[in-house]
Amino acid sequence: MRIKRSIGGAVMALTALLATAQGEPLKIAYSDWPGWVAWEIGIQKGWFKEAGVEVEFAWMDYVESMDAYVAGKVDAVTMTNGDALVTGGTGKPSVGIIINDFSNGNDMIVGAPGIESFKDLKGKKVGVEEGFVCHLLLLKGLEVNGMKPEDITVVNTPTNETPQVLEAKAVDAIGAWQPNSGQALKAVPGAKPLFTSADAPGIIYDLLYVSGESLEKNKEEWGKVVGVWYKIVDFIKDEENLDEALEILSARVSLKPEEYEPFFKGTYILSLDEALEKWKEADGLGSVYGSSKLVDDFNVKFEVYDKSLDVTKYLDPSFTKAYAESKK
């Protein structure tokens, strides 16, 4: 049932419309990942209008959202830091202005029954989509466990088909992210996670990426979007709001709150202070720059694109830093 807006709400809506009267609303494509579904809180609560910025969110499948961005149908898209390099190296560059989260267990290498540890994969087949983030996670698992890529056989498998190939016993393990990893664990009794993104925090960062053209034209408006994001983060981080947050997030993906909660917990949404730390330029997974350099090396090695990219051109911490300064 539609709730009647108050006079104050109408005034806020009018303010937002006037603020963007000179141009089109900002268009953001977002998809089914907890750190991105979180935008729904700001949408449902009217916080964008309250901030004086008009934003249109387009809900899409992940790959479709990137295609829409490359085609110029939206101004911004939610992507992993690795996939942002792929879209830039093969199509349209973008600039990350918000680090929403890092994967904290939702991306997994799942072993079939009888595979008790990662090292048991030696000489086995692993179904994973080559060139995607779970392939990178698999390589990291090999490194951590003192193994080499030659110790396993990679079977190139679309991520959404990995639960079926594990159930069919066509492979001994799969690499997938939620909800596919969870589906595999449900479909195959005795299957277990062998290595997850929680074992390599920072290997997969999730960001909001904006086109350079839109950033140049709408810098003030994107700054307001950053402010709304951290209002969402503050809401989520308050334990008193957890039930309401899960209600909003789960409704977006047609699940019950209790079904959605494990997905939410497998995603580490960054506070403002934590994000500022990740924005510092450094090597290693503790920095979005170091993580992106690792992915860039991976993309070149597996011929996703031809030569290394300058990852610094794909990242802009200035919006987060400016917001932090405004809060002092």
Rank of each mutant, 00 (worst) to 15 (best):
N106D: 13
K124H: 06
G182V: 01
F319E: 08
E325S: 10
E54G: 00
A84C: 08
K125C: 04
I232E: 11
G182H: 06
P93Y: 07
K217I: 13
I115V: 13
W59L: 13
F118Q: 01
V63T: 06
G82P: 00
M1Q: 12
L137Q: 01
L136I: 09
N145V: 05
G72Y: 11
I41G: 07
S308D: 07
V165N: 00
D199E: 09
I203D: 09
E64K: 11
K237E: 10
A191R: 03
T312D: 05
N104D: 15
K265P: 09
Y260G: 07
G131F: 14
G202Q: 07
K307R: 13
D296P: 04
D316L: 10
S65L: 00
E259I: 02
A282R: 06
I99R: 03
D297Y: 10
V144P: 10
P193H: 05
Y69P: 01
A200F: 10
A170P: 01
L18A: 14
S287E: 13
A275Q: 13
V171H: 01
S318R: 07
A170V: 06
E281H: 06
G72I: 02
D238S: 04
I41D: 04
V133W: 02
G88M: 03
A76W: 02
G96F: 12
S250W: 12
Y314D: 08
K148E: 13
N241I: 09
I248S: 11
T162M: 00
I97H: 10
F298M: 03
E239Q: 12
E167I: 05
D120I: 04
D32L: 08
I174V: 02
V225L: 06
V304N: 02
S94N: 11
A10S: 07
L208K: 00
S214M: 03
K4A: 15
Y209H: 12
Q22G: 11
R252S: 15
P163A: 07
G52H: 12
V288M: 08
E64C: 08
S254W: 09
K321F: 06
E303P: 00
F57P: 03
W39N: 12
F48Q: 04
G146A: 14
K231N: 06
I43F: 12
N299T: 04
D83K: 05
S214F: 03
G8W: 11
G131Q: 09
L255Y: 07
A198D: 09
Y323M: 09
F263P: 05
S318K: 07
S6T: 15
G190L: 02
L315H: 06
L14A: 12
T159N: 11
G52S: 11
E258S: 08
V37I: 15
D61P: 05
P262Y: 11
I109A: 07
K301Q: 03
V154D: 08
E150Y: 01
V233I: 05
P193L: 04
G91M: 10
K280C: 15
N100A: 15
S250T: 04
P34S: 07
L249C: 09
F264C: 12
H135Y: 02
E239V: 03
G72F: 09
S65I: 03
T267F: 13
L136W: 06
K73C: 14
Y314K: 05
V188W: 01
K122F: 09
K313T: 14
G46Q: 10
Q164M: 14
